[in-house]
Write a protein that binds this DNA or RNA. Structure first.
Lengths: 128, 128
DNA sequence: TCTGGTTAGCGAAGATCTTCGCTAACCGAT
DNA sequence: ATCGGTTAGCGAAGATCTTCGCTAACCAGA
């Protein structure tokens, strides 16, 4: 059994969400074009996945438009936050910072991004 | 079909890995005690999961010891890095820094951790 | 109106993940 | 040696996820 209203997107679902974050609002045809390019998905499969995701509340659709257009039900930021929380909880036992350190240590970040991070660190230090 | 040697741990598998990261080397009995506390898992299930994970290469075991003892095949850091890479790739389209910023913005980090992060930022800036 | 292409949906099959019943091997104590 | 508890493993059932065949509704152009 599955709890209501809190399902994490599965692999394919996430793939579709990514497409939506880029293209929404977006008809099935375009979503399918992408999926098909990526891995030869049948059109029926795309439609089905969207219907499943609609049931789960992962996407919304406007049925007034023809053809129907879909949108992600949550923003990329929100989804990322959920993933991150899960990652922190599940792997780092709740220590957000050890994750950050690892990400920083992984080494790819541009100068302006580093500046931005530094500014954030300052803010955090003030608050604590 | 599934590729060899690159399988991400599933939910239960991750739960077991976490136990191992804390307790390894560790016999089934202890792993099971934890799982059972957490969600009433049958002993057979624990054994089976370990055997599956052994097949997948997610854990190693020492059969000389009696009872056999298990270890995680990868460190917590390594696993975290994989998850992180996947997260960055799948949700942030490859921008590591936007994830870092979000983690920082989430707000919980101790003073020494912040110092550590600042030092890392300095290093990165030197390199780039 | 008929026809062909597009759009939408159902239900079932195929994968993968998770659980456990049942059996067997093992080992220390009687 | 035998018994009873612990340890190990197989195979199949139950969940969930993913795919697609088939059918129907819709709509624009002949």
């Amino acid at each position: 059994m599955r709890e209501m209203g809190s399902s994490q997107p599965t692999a394919v679902e996430l793939e579709i969400l990514r497409i939506l974050w880029e293209l929404e609002p977006c008809p099935v045809r375009e979503i399918h074009a992408r999926l098909n390019d990526a891995k030869g998905t049948n059109y029926s499969t795309t439609v089905k996945m969207l219907s499943v995701m609609l049931t789960k509340g992962l996407v919304k659709r406007d049925e007034n438009a023809t053809p129907h257009v879909y949108r992600a039900a949550m923003t990329r930021q929100r989804a990322a936050k959920q993933f991150l929380s899960e990652l922190i909880e599940k792997v780092y036992d709740g220590s957000a910072m050890s994750l950050v350190l690892q990400a920083l240590a992984s080494g790819k970040a541009s100068k302006p991004e580093i500046e931005e991070a530094r500014r954030l660190l300052d803010e955090m230090e003030d608050k604590s």
